[in-house]
Amino acid sequence: MFRNILCSFSRLAIATRTPQSNVFKNTSDNLVKQITVRNFSLLNIQAPLAAPKLLENAPKPQPAATSTRTVTKFSIRKGKRKSVKAVLKRFYRLQWGIWIRTKAGRNKKLWKKNPPQKRRLRQHVFCNSTQSHMLDKMVGPYWRKPRYFIDDPYQPYHVRNEFERSRVTPKPYIPPEDRI
């Protein structure tokens, strides 16, 4: 068993060292020689076990980085809902429920776009109700909490009491005697 393992290691080494020569061409004598060489090389700590010189500078094989687009409703470890990171990189949630985004193509082929077109592309735009609802589901409750930063450029936009659909507080009442 011990010898078989060694043989398999040495065969691999042979294949990598001399890719052109066929493994099956090697006679048993050659194999034995290489085995004995290998044994001594183990004792000499100077040389590494298997150092194929051809693959030294080659890039190391890495597992392919696949992005996960699914919404995890119950995570494995904590059982919590997970946010989709792609959404947080591209959209911003205002406190009254809408999500805003940038326009596609705002940095592309600007040489052929006229100034009003470029201005429109630079603007940030609302998502519609269905889209906002979907984005709310893709993101955890942490992102729906209000933030109270100082000097926040988005601070005036988190409240939209001008329209009844987005009002959160009761609408004000001016008695008839106080009306102009």
Partner: peptide
């Protein structure tokens, strides 16, 4: 409807 402040008045 939203008549909270009217009723309070």
């Amino acid at each position: 409807g939203d008549h909270v402040n009217a009723i309070k008045y």
